[in-house]
Design a protein around this nucleic acid. Structure first.
Lengths: 339, 339
DNA sequence: ATGAAAGCGCTAACAC
DNA sequence: GTGTTAGCGCTTTCAT
């Protein structure tokens, strides 16, 4: 790899001058600058970040620690948002996966510290409270999709789910729906409680409620080893004369199973029953027919916001505080007029 | 950040000795080693990779260039495989996204060269021929899911699709199916031609064929701006007295639309019609009911193989050659006995 | 078994 | 506007 001295030799200037050109220092005559630039292009010189790190103590690297997020299909939009914002900054992205394992988490931090990353994005798949040793206090860090244990005013990026849910419920009500059903997420998920709470609260505002018989489980088993049961529970629920006119689902996969159950019973969506998902996992929501009405998790924006926060934090331009990003209701054909 | 000299001072040895301990050099007495190790732990010392890079010319970083792969839900398994293999090596992973844009591609290479990456994984979303300037000849590179333009014996990782397709067809035939339909992928995809070719070839071996009337488009429009039309084309096809008993689909999303079409017509899968997908995009294939029989793209293994290739290549232990990974047929409930 | 000196590529702080 | 000196953290080479 060609170094700054070789460029200097070719351009017949000192290495310091080459450095000035590279960093757009004004104090270089246009003529020398052109000569140096020509040498840079001719030799294909790219400054060595390792050397830069030693001099300036800046690596130009942001570390990304995920539990499983970067290796599951659900939240690629977070990664996408992060990369899109990274690309506009001058940082590079170093990604590490912990699979939720504490030992690997510790190893990940060491790895990132070895590279002297300027900051870290700590992203979790599910909303949850972080345990104390998950985040290294010595490195500027923004946590994404999770809460710090100490409840401190840590920089964080979180989705705000309840407004989106409220919007969805209101849309259903104004389409004439009065009989609501709900298919629950895994109970150990923070989001599960929050979504059901938001659903019930909004229903109450409309003078409606969720009957127990129409509130069933969509998933069973412990986190990460859970299996979907929505197909069976929904099939039983819908195979009655008295059934809900609209079915809210904890997420879009559950909605797909609910759709399968309706299909099996010969019920048409949305003519016989309306369906609303959560997450806006588009491979399902935009591909199935009818397309799935659902509340979109703002993953892309969360990723972007996370990068902006960490960049601001690293440059001391930002005071650390949690930031909430709104969820939007995506009204699509699976939610229609009540029968 | 604490440096090797501070550790040396605390342990009362020279910095060189600390270095020896860090790198497990034998020539250190157990006693000094223990003292040094204690200092390292106490201070939380992690060697500075930037300094290491300068001395050894090894960054310990593998660059990952993707067009869109790392930001779409379809191929997270490649990333997963890569990360799982990276984790067992001593490399870190620096990820860059080009979105298929030549300018960003050039910028990506410069970024990786700045970090003096030891090797590069160049991964594409769809199988395609690379153009000449996509890969930098100056950096050891393994291309994944794509072919080099010059047809040279470049190190590459590719899926072998035809055997999996043949297996799927044979399974259908032995379940009594004689009337085959096919829903095509975007014609500009290399995989589209290959899959249809493999399907027809295997059918021919069984003395069967694909009637034109049962071979329809699943997708329309140019790549990256295409829309699914499988719901409509399949609905028309199936809304006839004479219809196929099994429908092969170019990918799993198309299969989901085919399923939607069948549901709309009141046809049951698999009793009235069997369905076979391609890709094994599990969020669809394992969640819908019946679960979707499909040919699995071996993305995880491809990712792992890619890392092993690049590691071998960097250490000159491997001669560069393309490597093919087999696709496996996943027999699930959507493919059943012919009616 | 341990240490001292030199140098990797680069820039901050001064010269000039 | 341009060049010189020194040193960032580390390992290689050579001494001891």
């Amino acid at each position: 790899m060609v170094s700054i001295t070789e460029v200097a030799a070719v351009a017949k200037v000192s290495d310091r001058t080459v450095s000035r050109v590279v960093h757009n220092d004004k104090r270089v005559t246009p003529k020398t600058r052109a000569r140096v630039q020509a040498a840079i292009n001719a030799l294909g010189y790219v400054p060595n970040r390792g050397a830069l790190l030693m001099r300036t103590n800046k690596s130009g690297i942001i570390g990304l620690i995920t539990d499983v997020v970067s290796t599951t299909p659900f939240s690629t939009d977070i990664i996408h948002g992060i990369q899109s914002a990274i690309e506009e900054s001058d940082y590079s992205l170093l990604t590490v996966n912990t699979a939720g394992d504490p030992e690997r988490t510790a190893k990940s931090w060491r790895e990132l510290k070895g590279h002297r990353v300027d900051g870290v994005l700590y992203v979790t798949m599910f909303q949850r409270k972080l345990s104390a040793d998950e985040v290294d206090p010595g490195v500027p860090t923004v946590i994404v999709n999770c809460h710090s244990e100490d409840g401190a005013n840590r920089p964080a990026i979180l989705p705000e789910e309840s407004a989106g849910m409220a919007e969805a419920v209101s849309a259903a009500v104004s389409l004439g729906h009065r009989k609501f059903g709900y298919v629950r997420l895994n109970a150990s998920l923070l989001a599960a409680a929050e979504r059901e709470r938001a659903l019930r609260a909004t229903l109450a505002e409309h003078g409606l409620s969720l009957p127990d018989k129409w509130c069933v489980s969509g998933v069973e088993g412990p986190l990460f080893e859970d299996t979907f049961v929505a197909y069976d529970t929904v099939k039983s629920m819908l195979d009655q004369a008295d059934r809900p006119s609209v079915l809210f689902c904890g997420n879009d996969e559950i909605a797909l199973q609910a759709f399968s159950a309706a299909a099996r019973l010969g019920l048409r969506v949305p003519e016989d029953i309306s369906l609303v998902g959560f997450d806006d996992f588009r491979v399902v929501s935009e591909v199935m027919r009818p397309r799935l009405a659902t509340v979109a998790l703002p993953y892309f924006q969360m990723g972007q916001a996370a990068v902006r926060q960490i960049a601001g934090l690293v440059q001391d331009q930002l005071e650390p505080a949690p930031q909430f990003i709104a969820c939007q209701f995506m009204h699509r054909e699976s939610l229609s007029r009540a029968p």
